[in-house]
Measured scan of single mutants.
Amino acid sequence: MSIQHFRVALIPFFAAFCLPVFAHPETLVKVKDAEDQLGARVGYIELDLNSGKILESFRPEERFPMMSTFKVLLCGAVLSRVDAGQEQLGRRIHYSQNDLVEYSPVTEKHLTDGMTVRELCSAAITMSDNTAANLLLTTIGGPKELTAFLHNMGDHVTRLDRWEPELNEAIPNDERDTTMPAAMATTLRKLLTGELLTLASRQQLIDWMEADKVAGPLLRSALPAGWFIADKSGAGERGSRGIIAALGPDGKPSRIVVIYTTGSQATMDERNRQIAEIGASLIKHW
C-alpha cells in the first residue's frame, strides 16, 4: 500500500482519535458579512469528516447552483462504474471539434489522439474542462443518470439537468442544476469515506481534487503551510461562485467545507476574496 493510499485508508482512524471539535460562531459572522459585502445569498456548511456531524452552517438547506462543483460527483459516478466493471479508466475516447464547448483548455489539445477516461476526469476536476465533463456525462448516460446515481446514494436534493455550459445559467428560483450545502457536503463525505467506492477509487477521487489547479484564489489562499486540501470550485452566471473541499491540518483532511453564493453584482475577484476570507476565519478558529 502506498503512503497516499495509507493516508486515505486511515482518515477515519486518525479522526477518531482527534480531540473533540467545537464550532466557532466567528466564522458564521464572516459568512454573514460576506453576504453584506456581496449583496447576495451565501450558503455555508462545515462537517466533521469522521462523524458527519454538522459543526457550523448557514442557509444549509437553500438551493444554490452547483456550477462546476458537480464534476466531482460526476467522476465519482464514473469511478463507481469502474468498480462495477462497467468502465475502464484506460479506455480512450475520441471526439471532434464539434464536441468542444466553451472553456476546454485540455480537451482542445487532444482532438487528434483523444483522451482516456482517467485523463478526462483529471481534466474535468483539476482544470474544470467543460468538454471533458460533457464527454464523461455521455459515458454514464447524461445528466439524468448522474441525478439517479445521487438518488441511489441517498441524495434526493442534488440534481443535474443540463450539460456544460448551460448548467451554469443560475436563474433565480430555478431548481435545475442545483444542490443544497448540506446535501453536497453529505454526498461528498460519502464519496470520500464511505463504502460506495473502493479504496482505490476513493484515493483516485481525492487525488484529482488535491491536484486542483484553478481554485488557488479561494480556500487555498488562506491555508497555512502543512495543511491538506482537496477541492473543486465552480463559477456561473449572475454572480455565482462555489467551492467544495476536504481539508485539515497535519497533512490530512478532517472536515468537509461547502460554500456557495449566487445573485451578486460583485466582480469575480471580490467573490473570490470573500470566500478566501471565510476560509481564513475557519482556519483561525479551527
Rank of each mutant, 00 (worst) to 15 (best):
P25V: 10
P25W: 14
A34G: 12
R41I: 13
Y44T: 01
L49C: 06
S51Y: 12
S51V: 10
I54P: 15
I54S: 15
L55K: 13
L55E: 06
S57C: 06
P60I: 15
P60W: 14
E62M: 09
E62N: 07
R63Y: 15
F64Y: 13
M67V: 12
M67L: 12
M67F: 04
S68I: 04
T69D: 00
F70A: 15
V72A: 08
L74I: 15
C75F: 02
G76Q: 02
V78M: 08
R81N: 06
D83I: 03
A84C: 10
G85V: 09
Q88G: 14
R92F: 11
R92D: 14
I93R: 03
Y95E: 02
S96N: 11
Q97T: 09
D99P: 05
E102I: 11
Y103Q: 05
K109Y: 10
K109E: 06
K109T: 10
H110I: 05
T112G: 13
T112A: 13
T112R: 11
G114E: 03
M115T: 04
V117W: 02
V117Q: 04
R118M: 07
E119C: 05
S122V: 09
A124K: 01
A124N: 04
I125T: 09
T126V: 07
D129N: 01
N130Q: 04
T131D: 02
A132R: 00
A132T: 03
T139F: 12
K144C: 11
K144W: 11
K144V: 08
T147M: 07
A148K: 07
N152S: 12
M153H: 07
V157L: 08
T158I: 03
T158W: 02
R162H: 08
W163A: 07
N168E: 03
A170V: 12
A170L: 06
P172N: 08
E175F: 07
T179R: 00
A182Y: 09
M184S: 03
A185T: 03
L188Y: 07
K190A: 15
L192T: 13
E195H: 15
E195S: 15
S201C: 09
Q203A: 06
Q204L: 11
Q204V: 12
E210K: 12
A211L: 10
D212S: 12
G216P: 06
S221L: 12
A222N: 13
A225R: 09
A225S: 10
A225D: 13
A230P: 00
D231C: 05
S233Q: 00
S233I: 01
E237F: 11
G242V: 01
I243Q: 03
P249L: 11
G251D: 10
K252R: 09
I256L: 11
V258E: 01
Y260S: 03
T261C: 13
T262G: 09
G263A: 09
S264N: 15
Q265V: 11
E270S: 14
R273D: 13
I278Y: 01
G279R: 02
A280V: 13
L282Q: 13
K284M: 06
